[in-house]
Write a protein that binds this DNA or RNA. Structure first.
Length: 270
DNA sequence: ACCTACCTGGCC
DNA sequence: GGCCAGGTAGGT
C-alpha cells in the first residue's frame, strides 16, 4: 500500500517519538526481512536515533556510530508504537525496544517489507538509493519537464518508475493521470507541453492531498496508533473500475499496464 | 518492455 | 481452489 504520502505520514508521526531515543534491543521475528541477520540486531543495539529522513518511498533513521537504518514498507508494511506490556499484534515482524516501556513495531502481513543497515553517512551509495530519481514532492516543474523530455514509453509505466521520479505508486499514479485529464495508456512522447505541465501539477497535488488526508488505507495502512488514513474516500479512479466517474458519470475502464491494474475515465481523460 | 519471484491473507 | 493486492529486484 504505502506510497509517498503513507511513508510521509508515517515519518511525521514516528520521527518526533524516535529522535533522541536509544535502541535498547531489537527482536527480528522474520530474518528474511533484514540484511545481515543475525548481526543486524547486535549492530543496532545501543545506537541513538539522531534524525529521520525520506526519499520517495524509502525512509531511514540516522543513527549514532555513523550508521543509517533504511526502512521500506513495500506492499503491506507499517510502523506501530506499542507498550512493552501490550500483547504483540499478530503480524509483528521486527520489534525495537526504545526505552520507557515503548516498542517500535514493524508490522507486515505479507513480509515483503525490508530493513537494512547502511554503514557511513551517505545513504545514496546504496544501490537502491542510487537508482532513485528526485523525490516527487520536492520536484520543481523545470526538473520534471527536463526529465520527461528524455523519456519514452507509456505514461503510467513511467510514473511507476522510481528512477524517473521517486514516490508515485499505483494509487497516486492513476489519480494523477485523472487530475491531469490524460489517458494513462498514452505514450509520453505524444504529450503536449500543456499536458506535461498539467501532469506535473497533478502529481504534486495528488501527493499533497494524500498527505493532507494522512494517507490511503485499504486494508493495511494505519498510523502509529492504528488509526487509518482518510484519502481512500477522495479517490477518483483507483479501485473504482466499472464504477461511474465522480465527475462525468461515465463507466470507468481498467486494464493492466506494467502488470498493475490501471483505472481511468474515458470521458474525462484524453 | 516484459516476466517472475518474493509472501500472506481476503474475497469470490 | 483461484485471483487479487499499496512494491521492488532480478532475470531475459
Amino acid at each position: 500500500m504505502p506510497e509517498l504520502p503513507e511513508v510521509e505520514t508515517t515519518l511525521r508521526a514516528v520521527a518526533p517519538v524516535l529522535i533522541g531515543r536509544t535502541i535498547e534491543s531489537v527482536n527480528v521475528l522474520r530474518p528474511n526481512m533484514v540484511n545481515n541477520h543475525p548481526t543486524f540486531a547486535k549492530t543496532l543495539k545501543g545506537k541513538t536515533v539522531l534524525g529521520m529522513k525520506r526519499h520517495g518511498k524509502y525512509m531511514w533513521m540516522e543513527l549514532s556510530g555513523g550508521l543509517n537504518l533504511m526502512l521500506h514498507l513495500r506492499m503491506s508494511g507499517r510502523l506501530g508504537l506499542r507498550k512493552l506490556k501490550d500483547t504483540p499484534l499478530s503480524r509483528e515482524r521486527i520489534r525495537f525496544e526504545i526505552g520507557n516501556d515503548l516498542v517500535l513495531v514493524f508490522n507486515d502481513p505479507r513480509t515483503l517489507g525490508r530493513l537494512w543497515i547502511i554503514e557511513g553517512n551517505d545513504v545514496y551509495k546504496d544501490p537502491s538509493m542510487k537508482a532513485l530519481g528526485p523525490d516527487a514532492l520536492t520536484l520543481t516543474e523545470e526538473i520534471f519537464l527536463e526529465r520527461l523530455k528524455k523519456k519514452r514509453g507509456t505514461l503510467k509505466s513511467l510514473l511507476l518508475n522510481q528512477s524517473f521520479i521517486a514516490g508515485v505508486g499505483n494509487i497516486y499514479g492513476d489519480e494523477a493521470c485523472f487530475i491531469a485529464k490524460i489517458d494513462p495508456r498514452r505514450k509520453v512522447i505524444g504529450l503536449s507541453m500543456i499536458e506535461r505541465k498539467r501532469l506535473y501539477k497533478a502529481v504534486i497535488k495528488t501527493l499533497e492531498q494524500g498527505i493532507y488526508n494522512s494517507g490511503t488505507s485499504f486494508s493495511d495502512f494505519a498510523d502509529l496508533f492504528g488509526k487509518p488514513g482518510q484519502n481512500q474516500h477522495s479517490l477518483m479512479v483507483y479501485g473504482r473500475g466499472k464504477k461511474n466517474c465522480r465527475v462525468c458519470n461515465m463507466l470507468l475502464e481498467s486494464t493492466k499496464i506494467a502488470q498493475r491494474t490501471t483505472v481511468w475515465c474515458p470521458g474525462c481523460q484524453k
